[in-house]
Design a binder for these strands. Structure first.
Length: 889
RNA sequence: AGGCGCGUAGCUCAGCUGGCAAGAGCGCUACCCCGACACGGUAGAGGUCGUUGGUUCAAGUCCAAUCGCGCCUACCA
């Protein structure tokens, strides 16, 4: 049942489920606060229970998983807590819809039964997104999975509510709030989505009491005029300085309303006269309070007109708008209609147009909490990455308004406040009271509202750890190391968690906040159901494998730019997964248990030293990138190393040794280096592509257990990370020689397999002849040569193509009978043109005294080197070109 | 109205505190089944880094302006 090593292609389908089950069986995700190791904890941004996994989740989970897996192999005590939130409105909507199919409403079955059926629904369907997260390979500690309606979390919510109430940070009051007439509940400011609408601006005349003239007001919502309790003008508006009237008649009603003066009114807008509807507009509400205007509610909670609306009572608010306009027109009071694009608030759950509505709600007074949340970031207690988002975060906290937390729905944390029917006192306690705490009356009724889901989410970083109990979890894992999230919930969630965390725990809930990108479609558009451009992450997993998908996400996750996702890109990275698979297949031909012991350094070939030096650098560079949350850089480095350094060069270069053509010792050494490079690479790659690395790990001789238990690799020699600059330089020379030879073959259209003779002429002074002689075999092998001669400068061989891989090194490819002068000339000319460009620009630099005076030494040195090299190459090639040309003429 | 970001090869993007005659992946062209891989190999073509000024010995990289695009926040009726 395991994927066969004989298979040329990696079969992800046979592998992924197997290893996920294995990890869980071995409890490899389980965090233990009592175990040693520096703590590294993350709480997942809890997805909505009703949700299914979308691209945003996939990216979010993948990045967290990379961090957690990486930290585990780095020896940290990792705790990653998963879970879901109860999504009050969304879940209630889903279950209500289901009831509707059976012809029932929640009111018919009652609150208790309804809540039971929500729980039933959640048992049955609520786990969908969790299962999908598992397919992504998420290494969350599932034994610690939480749900915001869990008993423990409910306790936390009550505790927090009561404390804040006692501290007067929660209060109940009558204000204008955002009301969704369809969901039938209040919403916080954040839950309103604004959208630009091509609206109209209606100019309506409100006559004076004598029925003449009057003031013309402009409004986008004529239906609200029925609730007007005043008309406001700016006290400085010159047009109205001589106005004697103090009242107007409100059309369509028989009410008389006052003219008030308020500097809020913008004289330059419309007619400078503003109708004031305190019950249905936030600003009007404020103005109404200043002038003591009546609050007349004309739109009911279901969006129909109230009795206050007189003859319009009972009809829908939009229907009322039409009717009102017609009537005004008939009465000659409609002066004008102008197009007026403006933004209108919609419910973020059902997209119904929001009705600002006057009602009694619960609020959190957030000013003081927000101040502390801001301070924490200013003091760097919490660092936001990338830092651009810091400003957005401040901006919001600076302009924050009190948070409306009560919702008129049933599914959620019911507000722990009991009103006494006798004395009206509110008893607010954590445990259900039996009597009014003030008068002792048993006639008390619990508030019917529930709390905003985000209220409980705000407690997530500590409620999931068992707060208000003092748990070992909290001791070890709070504050969490990092919060990984997309910017769209920075206010909804991040800022609020900061406020609550600081207030109740005395410490900000996370040390870092990493804000990642949004995943968009191929054209860069936001994915949405209505546009039909949604790519389902599960389909990508099924078509290309989880590892390929994860790698795509990681390598695309550069800070500050959104990710464009398409099948094509994921398919591309599937090739990388396959490449790794084949590198492993190749390795398994050669390595055995014996190879697990790395040979002594003194027996290494130059290529061995070279690859180990590169690998050693890779350890620190990938770690550095991940520590800085540069997932794309880490993934990119690994890609380059595996494909281009390990596969393209190292494996090809070691084949002769591996196949025993260099003797037993060389073979043994080569095998051990191959083993180390493969093994270490797997460990470095594991956080990104957990499945294939685990699969290969289990086939790797002398490996045991899970790769999840591996230790982050290193190669320390004499107490220092291994580095071999000499080998790197020598190998670079060899590779440049080889590339030069291949270039000649390529440009001359000579089959790569055609074995040619090569002479390398080396300047004595360069001291490179030994290097070349020492690596003769390597060059012959990879350059596919018949023979190679290296000798001091000499007369150039006949009928040859030349290249200059390094200063003082001329490579002649003998092309007797093969050379095509035209092609060689073209090849040389191209090269010469390039070099002359370099020479001109470097000469300009070096002849500039200011440059020589100001530039740092190493930059000048580099320019000199560059010049010397270019010039020599130029001269050599030019001489050759001239020769060919003269021969031919 | 305010804030943030983007504009670099045909496409998708890297390029940190200025030293690059600019990198990667895909695509493209040519040659190639060489004892891991055609989901492959080798070589190659392709960019005056949106535009215009400025600072500097030196600018894709800093500053200013400008054009184009995207997003977020906001109570202008």
């Amino acid at each position: 049942m395991s994927s066969d090593i004989q298979n040329k292609g990696y079969e992800y389908k046979e592998v992924e489920q197997k290893w996920y089950d294995f990890w869980q069986k071995e409890s490899l995700f389980t965090a233990d606060p009592e175990k040693k190791g520096e703590s590294f904890s993350i709480v997942i941004p809890p997805p909505n229970v009703t949700g299914v996994l979308h691209m945003g989740h996939a990216l979010n989970i993948t990045l967290q998983d990379i961090l957690c897996r990486y930290k585990r192999i780095k020896g940290f005590n990792v705790c990653w807590i998963p879970g879901t939130d109860h999504a009050g409105i969304a879940t209630q909507n889903v279950v209500e819809k289901k009831l509707a199919e059976e012809g029932k409403t929640r009111h018919q079955i009652g609150r208790e039964k309804f809540i039971n059926s929500v729980w039933e629904w959640r048992e049955k369907y609520g786990g969908a997104i969790i299962q999908q997260m598992k397919r992504l390979g998420a290494s969350c500690d599932w034994s610690k999975e939480r749900f915001t309606m869990d008993e423990g979390l409910c306790n936390a919510v009550r505790e927090v509510f009561v404390k804040l109430y006692q501290e007067k940070l929660i209060y109940k009051g009558n204000y204008i709030i955002n009301w969704c007439p369809r969901c039938h509940t209040a919403l916080s400011d954040l839950e309103v989505e604004h959208q630009d609408i091509d609206g109209k601006l209606y100019y309506i005349r409100y006559p004076f009491l004598n029925g003449k003239d009057g003031l013309v007001v402009a409004t986008t919502r004529p239906e609200t005029m029925l609730g007007d309790s005043g008309v406001a003008i700016n006290p400085k508006d010159t047009r109205y300085l001589n106005l004697k009237e103090t009242q107007v008649k409100l059309p369509l009603t028989n009410r008389t309303i006052p003219i008030i003066k308020d500097k809020y009114v913008d004289a330059s807008f419309g007619t400078g006269a503003l109708k004031v509807t305190p019950a249905h507009d936030v600003n009007d509400f404020e103005m109404g309070r200043r002038h003591d205007l009546e609050i007349i509610k004309v739109i009911a909670d279901d969006g129909t007109m109230t009795a206050e609306a007189g003859e319009f009572a009972g009809i829908d608010r939009f229907e009322c708008r039409k009717k009102a306009i017609t009537q005004l027109e008939n009465k000659g009071l409609l002066i004008d209609i102008k197009n007026h694009p403006h933004s209108v608030g919609h419910c973020y759950r059902c997209f119904t147009v929001i009705e600002p509505n006057f009602s009694e709600q619960w609020f959190v007074s957030v000013k003081s909490l927000a101040e502390k949340a801001k301070n924490a970031v200013e003091q760097k207690e919490t660092v936001i990455i990338p830092k651009n988002w810091t400003k957005t975060y401040y901006e919001w906290l600076n302009n924050i308004k009190d948070w409306c937390i009560s919702r008129q729905i049933w599914w959620g944390h019911r507000i722990p406040a009991w009103e006494c029917e006798k004395c009206g006192h509110l008893t607010v306690t954590t445990t259900d009271p039996k009597e009014c705490e003030k008068c002792g009356s048993k006639n008390i009724l619990q508030d019917t509202d529930v709390l905003d889901t985000w209220f409980s989410s705000a407690l997530w970083p500590f409620s999931t750890m068992g707060w208000p109990k003092k748990t070992k979890m909290i001791q070890k894992y709070y504050p969490t190391a990092v919060l990984v999230t997309a910017f769209d919930i920075i206010f909804f969630w991040v800022a609020r968690m900061m406020m609550m965390g600081i207030h109740f725990m005395g410490e900000a809930p996370f040390k870092k906040v990493y804000v990642h990108a949004l995943v968009r479609d191929e054209e860069g558009k936001k994915m949405s159901k209505s546009k039909g451009n949604v790519i389902d992450p599960i389909s990508l997993i099924e078509n290309y494998g989880t590892d390929a998908f994860r790698y795509t996400l990681a390598i695309s996750a550069s800070q500050g730019r959104d990710i464009k996702m398409s099948d094509k890109i994921v398919d591309g990275y599937r090739h990388f997964i396959n490449k790794l698979w084949n590198a492993a297949r190749f390795s398994f031909i050669h390595i055995n248990e014996e190879a697990a012991d790395l040979a002594d350094k003194k027996n290494f070939s130059v290529t061995d030293r070279w690859i180990l030096s590169k690998l050693s650098r890779l350890y620190t560079e990938t770690a550095g990138a991940l520590n800085a949350y540069k997932f794309n850089e880490a993934a990119n480095m690994l890609y380059q190393f595996v494909w281009h350094e390990f596969c393209d060069w190292y494996i090809e270069a070691s084949k002769p040794a591996l196949y025993g053509k260099k003797g037993k010792t060389a073979q043994k050494v080569a095998r051990s280096v191959l083993y180390k490079v493969l093994k270490d690479t797997l460990i470095l790659l594991h956080p990104f592509i957990p499945f294939i690395t685990e699969e290969i790990w289990h086939k790797l001789p002398a490996s045991f257990g899970s790769i999840m238990n591996a230790v982050y690799p290193s190669y320390i020699i004499d107490g220092k990370p291994f580095a071999d600059i000499e080998a790197e330089e020598d190998i670079k020379l060899c590779f440049d020689i080889i590339t030069g030879i291949r270039n000649v073959k390529g440009e001359m259209n000579i089959a790569p397999g055609k074995e040619l003779e090569v002479e390398i002429h080396v300047a004595q002074a360069s001291g490179l002849i030994e290097t070349i002689l020492a690596n003769q075999d390597l060059i012959i092998n990879l350059g596919r040569l018949k023979s190679l001669i290296a000798k001091p400068f000499d007369k150039e061989p006949e009928a040859s193509a030349v290249s200059v891989p390094a200063e003082g090194v001329l490579t002649y490819v003998i092309l007797k009978g093969v050379i095509e002068v035209k092609k060689e000339r073209a090849r040389l000319e191209k090269e010469i043109a390039k070099l002359s460009g370099v020479i001109t620009s470097v000469t300009k630099k070096l002849s500039n005294n200011d440059f020589l005076y100001n530039a740092p030494e190493h930059v000048i040195e580099k320019a000199r080197e560059q010049y010397k090299e270019a010039e020599e190459k130029y001269n050599t090639l030019k001489a050759n070109l001239d020769k060919i040309t003269s021969l031919n003429e």
